[in-house]
Every structure is written in structure tokens, then in C-alpha cells.
């Protein structure tokens, strides 16, 4: 009995590990103003399903991604593309930045271009000497993107993988083709739901 309680305790602690890396991204109010929105929320059973399917039937260029998502606990993406400037405020960006300045988070790289009004930052969350989370914040005049990965992640590998996964070359950081794919994916998902 004691052994079981101990095991349950260990399992509970394990599930909590890295959970501090999960950001509370409150940017949903921007969806109404955005021209295109990417909203990815994968965790738990859904993430496991996606990971298994990726491992079972990797498409061209996805083989390396299988290893990359091993041990991943969650992936959350909010990306908003606007038709005109000024759709989001500095407060929206600051709200995310404030969380990224909290305990455990370290700024990996942060670059700002005042002239273009662009900022991009990569942050990592350390726990027990291990990297247990990653966040990317990119603010451009017409685009605001926040990526939050919970669990260990090789940032270098992730960067190298980009452009290979969706079978297209480097996007030049513009998300339009990806957003188009996302829209196609949404249509596909809705079709599945209707079935």
C-alpha cells in the first residue's frame, strides 16, 4: 500500500515537472481584429495521439521531428496576422514578457529593431538544471506570435527542421503560407467533425 502511494506521488510530481513552463497566453481578444489566426493547443492525450501518428507515419521531412517531440508535454501557439498596424498594443506584448521574466525563465536571445518596430525573443525555462520549456515571442507591426513549448526541446534542431516539415523552403519569416495551410487544416478538421 505504502509502495503504491509512493508510486502515485512520484507520478504526480513527474506530471508537475515542467508545468511552470506553461504560459498563460491571454491574447484571444486579438482574434477579432486579426486577418488570420493560428491557434495551436496540444497537450495530454491529443499531443500523445499526434506524436504516435507522427512516429507511425512520418511524411517526407518529418522523421527528425519524431525525436524532437519525444518528452514534449505541450505545445501552444498563438499567431495573429493583421491587415493594418496598431491592432495590438504594447500592453499585450508586455503581459507575455512579464511572465517570461518570472522564476525559471531565461532570455536566450532577444533582438529588437526600433526602425522596423520588430522584436523577437527566444526564452528557455530551466528546472533542476534541465531545460524544461521554450518560448518564442515575435512582435512585428502586422504580426504577433507567441510560441510556448512545455518539455525538453532542442532549439537548434527545431531551427534546422523549419522549412522541412511542411515541405516548403524557409518562409522568410512570413507566416502567410503556413496560415493558408492552417486554414486548410481547419476545413479538414471540421469535415472530420461533421462525419
Amino acid at each position: 500500500m505504502r509502495y503504491r502511494i509512493l508510486l502515485a506521488g512520484v507520478a504526480f510530481c513527474w506530471s508537475l515537472l515542467g508545468q511552470g513552463a506553461k504560459l498563460d497566453i491571454k491574447l484571444d481578444h486579438l482574434a477579432a481584429k486579426a486577418e488570420r489566426v493560428v491557434n495551436v493547443n496540444l497537450e495530454g492525450a491529443m499531443l500523445e495521439m499526434g506524436r504516435k501518428f507522427l512516429a507511425l507515419e512520418p511524411r517526407k521531412g518529418e522523421a527528425d521531428a519524431v525525436e524532437l517531440v519525444e518528452g514534449l508535454q505541450g505545445i501552444y501557439v498563438r499567431s495573429y496576422h493583421f491587415a493594418a498596424e496598431g491592432a495590438y498594443t504594447a500592453a499585450d506584448v508586455e503581459a507575455v514578457k512579464k511572465q517570461l521574466s518570472g522564476t525559471g525563465w531565461t532570455s536566450f536571445v532577444s533582438v529588437s529593431d526600433q526602425k522596423k518596430g520588430e522584436t523577437v525573443g527566444v526564452y528557455s525555462y530551466m528546472e533542476g538544471g534541465k531545460m524544461m520549456g521554450t518560448a518564442v515571442l515575435s512582435a512585428e507591426p502586422l504580426e504577433l506570435t507567441v510560441v510556448n513549448i512545455v518539455g525538453p526541446m532542442d532549439i537548434g534542431k527545431l531551427g534546422r527542421l523549419q522549412g522541412k516539415l511542411l515541405g516548403m523552403p524557409d518562409l522568410g519569416m512570413k507566416l502567410k503560407p503556413v496560415l493558408k495551410l492552417k486554414q486548410d487544416l481547419k476545413v479538414k478538421t471540421e469535415k472530420v467533425k461533421r462525419l
Partner: peptide, 17 residues
Amino acid sequence: AVRDELVLGLEIAGAKI
């Protein structure tokens, strides 16, 4: 569809990194 979403998330993260 979930796999596509996962790949899309990784792709966006990779692009921004």
C-alpha cells in the same frame, strides 16, 4: 489532423527561432 497541428506548431516555432 492532430499530427498536422503539431507539425504546424513546430514549423512556426522553428521559423521564429
